[in-house]
Simulated assay, not measured.
Amino acid sequence: MLYRIAADALMLLHLLFILLVLFGGLLVLRWRGLLGWHLPMVVWGAAAELFQLPCPLTGWENAMRRAAGQTGYGGGFIEHYLYPLIYPAGLTPRLQLWLGALVLAVNAPVYLRLLRSRRRA
Rank of each mutant, 00 (worst) to 15 (best):
I5D: 02
V28Y: 02
G69A: 00
A68V: 06
L20C: 09
A67L: 13
P109H: 12
P40A: 01
Q70S: 03
A68L: 03
P40R: 09
L57F: 11
G100P: 03
Q70W: 14
L29H: 05
L27I: 15
V43P: 10
R30D: 01
L22I: 02
A47Q: 09
L102N: 02
A9F: 07
G33I: 15
L95M: 15
M1Q: 07
Q96G: 09
L10N: 11
A9Y: 10
L114M: 14
L114W: 06
L112N: 07
I78Y: 11
R32Y: 02
R113K: 12
A47I: 02
M1I: 03
P54T: 12
P40E: 06
V42F: 08
Y87C: 06
L16G: 10
L39Q: 00
L20Y: 10
L39W: 13
G36E: 00
C55V: 05
L19E: 09
P93G: 04
G69R: 10
L115Q: 13
C55Q: 12
Y87K: 10
A101T: 15
C55H: 06
T71V: 05
P84F: 02
G72H: 00
L112C: 10
R113F: 07
A89F: 12
L27D: 02
P84L: 01
A9E: 04
F17H: 08
F23S: 05
H38C: 01
L97C: 13
S117T: 15
L34Y: 01
R94K: 06
E61R: 08
H80E: 07
R30W: 08
L53V: 05
L114V: 03
P56W: 08
L15Y: 04
Y81H: 13
Y111F: 06
E49Q: 15
D8W: 10
A68K: 13
R119N: 08
L115S: 04
L97F: 15
M11L: 04
P93V: 00
P88N: 11
P40Y: 04
Y83E: 07
Y73I: 00
A46F: 03
L85P: 07
A48F: 00
P93E: 00
G59I: 04
P54S: 12
T58S: 11
A108I: 10
A89G: 14
Y87R: 15
P84R: 04
Y3G: 00
H38A: 02
A9S: 11
L15D: 11
L99I: 14
L97Q: 13
S117E: 13
L13V: 11
R94A: 14
F77R: 07
T58I: 05
A6F: 12
I18M: 06
A67C: 09
L26K: 03
L85Q: 13
T92S: 14
G36T: 01
G69Q: 04
R116T: 06
P84W: 02
I18H: 09
F17P: 13
L39C: 01
L26R: 03
A121M: 09
L34V: 12
P88L: 04
M1P: 14
L26F: 15
W37I: 13
W60T: 14
L27K: 14
P88F: 15
R30F: 05
H14K: 06
Q70P: 07
L102Q: 05
A63S: 14
V110S: 00
V103F: 00
L39A: 06
L29G: 09
A105Q: 05
H14Q: 12
R119L: 11
W60S: 14
